[in-house]
Nucleic acid binder design. Structure first.
Lengths: 207, 207
DNA sequence: TGTACATCAGTGAACGCGCGTTCACTGATGTAC
DNA sequence: TGTACATCAGTGAACGCGCGTTCACTGATGTAC
């Protein structure tokens, strides 16, 4: 009996390993080309398998995409949480700069997230998972605002900040004339302005 | 000679009228279904013509889409300019609320704009036209901030406000549980919070 | 120890569909003589 | 006034391509007897 379980467990873990190869290949594809251009044949090629094999592990394209996307975006969010935790207490400027840095560096994921939401056709499972990540980020913002002893509804402030940062990434982007560095600089400039307005508000309301 | 000119002018205007029918049909399609689903056959059907005829007026799909999109988005922006001009001097809360109202009501266009920018593959001509519209909106914001006698770089404040509003529309949207009214209410709640923070900042820096 | 059969990873080619675009054609109107 | 020809709006069907997904099959490994 015991051996049976171990054997099937081994089988199971081998299967998971194969599955992971596919997910990793998909994730890699996402960071390599625009979302629309990612397709099953290229994912299969990158994983070194036949397209048909993917369908032994995932019922359809959407399931695979969701899994790959969640895996990637989770790592990014984890990184942001860590970075924010490390920053000085209530250093809103640093937190904001980190956010801009991270999503500028991982623009593919930002665009995918926007794509999912704008299309409206978000898979329910994916929606839940993204919500968990977002709420955790909002919690982090909450903690920061609390330390600033800001006036008003803390959660609203976090929502406002989150929306504003998202807007900065969404609004200031690739431009025929401007270089990537210029865009990042402008994003940071505007983000710093936002930070100043928040900080000023907090210092007046806290006093 | 004179008659010749009039005749060719008449011909020309007839041609433009036919062209406009196609553009209008495309615009209508955009407001009816998600961007991805808009296709040439349906546009042709709506215009009451054969798909092939579209290609007598437009070299390809992208040209038609750009023209239809610019026509629609221009009207929306014009409406916003008018509304903002009518609002009380420096009434930042009203201006912000109008912005949210307009883009919530015209979500299709908001999504298309996001799609264009996020895809990166923005046609140069389109990019220029959108830039003109955006700059005009920023100018309107500038005027408002100037009346508030706000401290700091006015243009940066306008960029910050524009990004934040865009972010609010982009971030808070269709949700399996929440109704459309709830979403609009939440957008307005967060937008009002944003307005308060800006107003407070302005009143302190102006004093 | 050998044989028949089951299981399952894995495959390349093919199916099917959506959709942008082109083809080959029609029919009406204008123009030259 | 009639005839030959040009122009051009307009058409439905077909072409071609990308791409998700399925089909029919192979080959290796395990299992029952």
């Amino acid at each position: 009996m015991k051996k049976d379980i171990t054997l099937s467990e081994l089988k199971e873990s081998e299967k998971n390993a194969r599955r992971k190869i596919i997910v990793d290949a998909a994730e890699k594809e996402f960071t390599t080309k625009p979302f629309k251009r990612v397709n099953m044949r290229d994912i299969a090629r990158r994983a070194g398998i036949s397209p048909a094999l993917i369908y032994r592990h995932f019922p359809d394209q959407q399931s695979l995409f969701v899994e790959a996307f969640v895996q990637g975006i989770s790592e990014i969010f984890e990184e942001i949480y860590r970075k924010i935790d490390q920053s000085e207490d209530g250093a809103i400027g640093d937190v904001i700069e980190d956010f801009i840095d991270f999503f500028t560096r991982n623009d593919q994921y930002f665009r995918m997230m926007m794509n999912f939401f704008l299309d409206g056709s978000v898979d329910h499972d994916l929606f839940d998972k993204l919500n968990v990540l977002e709420r955790k980020l909002l919690d982090t913002f909450d903690a920061m605002f609390r330390k600033l002893k800001i006036e008003g509804n803390i959660r609203f402030h976090s929502h406002t900040l989150f929306a504003a940062l998202t807007g900065i990434i969404a609004t200031f982007r690739s431009h025929p004339v401007k270089s990537d560095e210029e865009i990042l600089r402008h994003r940071k400039r505007i983000a710093a302005n936002l930070a100043k307005i928040f900080a000023e508000y907090a210092s007046h309301s806290g006093a």
